[in-house]
Design a protein around this nucleic acid. Sequence first.
DNA 1: AGTATGATTGCCT
DNA 2: GGCAATCATACTG
Length: 197
Amino acid sequence: MRAVDFSAASIEVARGLIGASIFVAGVGGRIVETEAYDEADSASHSFAGRTARNAAMFGPPGRAYVYRSYGLHWCLNFVCMPAGHGAGVLIRALEPLEGIALMQRNRGAARASDLLRGPGRLAAALRIDRQLDGLDLCRRGALWLAEDGQDAPDIGQSVRIGITRESERKLRFFVRGSRYLSGPAWLNGAGRARRPG
DNA sequence: AGTATGATTGCCT
DNA sequence: GGCAATCATACTG
């Protein structure tokens, strides 16, 4: 499947989005880390059913779901199949590509390697907030996606970060060896993800 | 490199 | 009231 194609389950979309790029008004980067949240996933915001906050997750695939995390940060997700069941992909980290100086201004002059490392940080750098919730990503709107021309990256797989429920499922995908990842080093290592020892 | 803490909003999963 | 798909800061090593 094409990378920018949401007619698939979140685990496939999470893997497929690695290497694609996100652009928002003069800034953007390449996706290096994602997490899948599927239907019947107790770690997902959609698990308890539809609310005002998570309504976009229950809409058509290929839309943005933007939520506030810990009352402070915004986080960006893409809605996936099956439609109406609340599956999605959390975008966790980008490699800076375009508008680095502007993104540094948006976040208070972070180093390039820290600019887009983590879902809250990348949303701040790209100035993503509630206004983009529900945006149709298949049209070129305020935020759009681009295929990457580069060859396929080496993709690692690990457990998800910052959750307590279903914490053993390996639904996080990342570019192995990237300097732009979030999470502890032992999750991002060269081998398959495991603790050193 | 790893660990602890407080900030703050929305839903109780 | 408690908790959450987080982050900056302030420590320790």
